[in-house]
Design a protein around this nucleic acid. Structure first.
Lengths: 152, 152
DNA sequence: ACACAAATGATATGTTGTATCTTAACACCT
DNA sequence: AGGTGTTAAGATACAACATATCATTTGTGT
């Protein structure tokens, strides 16, 4: 199971950890970023930029445009506060920012939930496949579509 | 390297193999399907449905709508004549239809080319990660973004 | 207060993907 | 040949995802 220990954060604590990580790299934890992070981490499923824009707009009574959301999500992904699920065109909050892993997403085609697994031996092997072909600047995308236990 | 032998097809031979595989499963090899397969296999990079629609429309002097292309690509993917590269929202022809593998795509962020690798031990391990979590109907999506040897 | 840089907003547009309904092609039967 | 049912493809509209450009606001240092 867990190949190592993490601080799994939730709610306030997660936002605090995200904030700490972002500020550590010289970026600011602004109101908009906080609102977007809160929205993102509130979803139980990968959320699209438009989902987040809608939720944040409602919560603040003030429209937030999708491009602003994309900007901030890109920042979050760059700083490892969030990850993009490529096969779903959507994003999820990183529940243990600060740990760097190639992650594996298991995405349920029925309920849409995504669980995030770190398995460094497996991801390392995927990296190796690319290394053998002479690839550089490698970023693995490892996702599994299927039907989760609850939905089976 | 190659974990086993394949018949790697090209050009006519590839289209013939694709046709044979499609017909084997009771589907028809129509003109439109042939044209779309030809267009797809002519690209040196993953092609979007719109790329294909444009090329086929030009080649036949008659518009082919994107939804028709999507329909046929979906069929090709279902019958293993083509694969979808999730991280690129695009498709590539399967150069050895008839062999069933979970495939691994190495996608160059510079030139856009994608190489297709079969490494059953690695993909099996990815499957196992999902199996351990109780997943069913598993379809791995294993892709690596990076910079290929030529572009480095 | 001023000047500068960073963050966000507004707007438009480009790209990818589906839904719905209609028409055309084809096989099969009598 | 003509009728009927099925599969394939076309037309159209729209939904969902993503980016480009320029304007405005906010924060920071002087």
């Amino acid at each position: 199971m867990g190949k190592h220990d993490h601080h799994e954060h939730h709610g306030e604590s997660l936002a605090d950890a995200a904030r700490a990580n972002l500020e550590k790299s010289g970026e600011k934890w602004t109101e908009t970023r906080a609102a977007i992070f809160e929205a993102l981490s509130g979803f139980s499923r990968p959320a699209s930029a438009y989902d987040i824009a809608e939720l944040v707009s409602a919560a603040r009574g003030k429209r937030v445009a999708p491009n602003s959301v994309y900007r901030i999500l890109d920042l979050f992904v760059a700083k490892n506060l969030a990850m993009r699920v490529e096969s779903a065109n959507a994003y999820i909050a990183n529940s243990h920012p600060g740990c760097e892993h190639d992650c594996i997403f298991l995405v349920c085609d029925t309920c849409g939930e995504a669980t995030h697994v770190d398995d460094d031996p497996v991801s390392q092997q995927v990296r190796n496949v690319a290394l053998e072909q002479g690839f550089n600047s490698i970023r693995p995308v490892i996702e599994v579509r299927g039907v989760c236990q609850k939905c089976s």
